Amino acid sequence: MSSSRSVGSNGSVDPRSKHFWTTRDMPPQDGKVVIVTGASSGMGWYCAQALAEHGAHVIIAARSLERCQSAASLIKETGVRGKVDAMHLDLSSFRSIVDFAKEFKARKLPLHTLVNNAGVFLVPFDHTQEGFETTVGINYFGHFLLTHLLMDKLKETGPGSRVVSMASLFELLGSVNWSDLEGKSAKESGLFEYSSSKIEIIMFVRELNKRLRGSGVEVFASQPGLVQTQLNGRKLDHGKLTSNLVDLATRVYGQRAEKASYCLQRPASDPTVDGYGGSYFSPPWLWILALNLDHAGMREPGNSLARDEAAWARLYNQTLLIVNSKLAEKGLGSIEAV
């Protein structure tokens, strides 16, 4: 994003000058309602725990309701002053996503922040219920739909509402297959599919933030570097050489999920980043090697697509057409362009 800005919209010092932000820097979150997807474990859990510790009402959303409830109970046991609830959300099913949005709205709560943290990485090859290759279907298309379905609540709650989406340092390797966004021709759910889903997330974040200017909602992207979480363990297809190499690198070099989650916590809570929508929170990196420090610094993605505004718009428009086609097939209505 532009480097010419020196003061945030609230008159604060440029947040890019703040280094080594941690949970201790988080201001009170009392009165705020936050949804964190994939928060039954790993970085999502630590992000949810930190927000609840500072007073937020956090909703943990993941595929297993039982695991969500267990994660919520664990957070409550730490003595947080905020409220923690659990809700079922399967991002591989558009029907589940639509049902989740309806159930949340039925609770008549505001929505200050949506943290799109859930994702899969190097999983066994498969497809979602809508026919997407699993990785792109969950990481990108699922969150695209969820964000649009909750946008009215975010706008209604603003100004100051936010969406934070999880990217990855592998965005450096990503590209967009314009003739096959759904992954129909994919032969595996591998590193190419993962990397592509992550640069698509960054492009979506920047296009959506551009479209939302003046609406009271801002959108951010984050990436944590290599992390020791279940994303790199239980979910891996260990029959693949790539999976084993990434798993080994993560075990040797990766950092704790709690520290890695700072890249989510800061854009979800720090008022000094108001006016910096579209920004990317990341540890410093040396090509594909992320340095395990300053996980909440504001930096630039490495992929040139992150700076191609025409490509952002093209991706957004094509994705919207695909999503609405899938929704129509199942009689689930449609979503409107932002």
Rank of each mutant, 00 (worst) to 15 (best):
M1N: 09
M1C: 10
S2K: 06
S3A: 10
R5M: 14
S6N: 15
V7W: 11
G11N: 13
P15M: 10
T22I: 14
T23P: 02
D25R: 15
D25C: 15
M26L: 14
P27F: 02
P27M: 04
P28F: 09
Q29L: 00
D30V: 12
V33F: 13
I35T: 04
V36D: 11
T37W: 05
A39Q: 05
S40L: 01
G42Y: 03
G42I: 14
A50R: 07
L51F: 10
L51G: 05
H54S: 05
G55N: 08
H57K: 12
I59S: 01
S64C: 11
R67I: 12
Q69W: 12
K76W: 10
T78D: 01
G79V: 09
K83N: 00
A86K: 07
L89W: 00
S96K: 03
I97L: 02
D99Q: 06
D99N: 04
A101Q: 07
E103A: 13
K105T: 15
A106Q: 14
P110K: 13
T113D: 13
N117S: 12
V120P: 01
F121H: 05
L122A: 00
F132D: 03
F132V: 09
T134S: 14
T135N: 07
G137A: 06
F141Q: 03
F141Y: 06
G142V: 06
L146N: 05
H148I: 00
L150I: 04
D152H: 03
G158M: 06
G158W: 03
G160C: 09
G160S: 12
S168E: 02
F170N: 03
L173C: 04
N177L: 07
N177M: 09
S179I: 02
G183W: 11
G183M: 10
E188R: 04
G190R: 14
L191A: 02
F192M: 07
E193L: 06
S195I: 10
K198R: 09
E200M: 15
E200Q: 15
E200A: 15
G214N: 06
G214T: 06
G214P: 04
V217T: 01
V217N: 03
E218W: 02
E218F: 01
V219K: 10
F220V: 08
P224H: 06
P224L: 06
Q228N: 12
Q230V: 08
N232A: 13
L236V: 00
L241K: 13
N244Q: 15
D247S: 09
V252P: 01
G254C: 03
K259M: 00
A260Y: 03
L264M: 11
R266Q: 06
S269H: 05
V273D: 04
D274E: 14
G275V: 07
P284F: 06
P284S: 11
L286D: 14
L291N: 08
N292C: 00
L293S: 05
D294Q: 04
R299N: 15
E300Q: 13
S304M: 13
R307E: 07
E309F: 11
A311Y: 11
A313D: 05
R314S: 01
Y316N: 14
L320G: 08
L321Q: 12
L321T: 13
I322T: 07
I322L: 08
V323A: 08
N324Y: 09
L327S: 03
L327T: 13
G331C: 00
S334M: 13
S334C: 11
I335V: 15
E336T: 11
E336K: 13
A337H: 04
A337F: 03
V338A: 11
V338D: 07
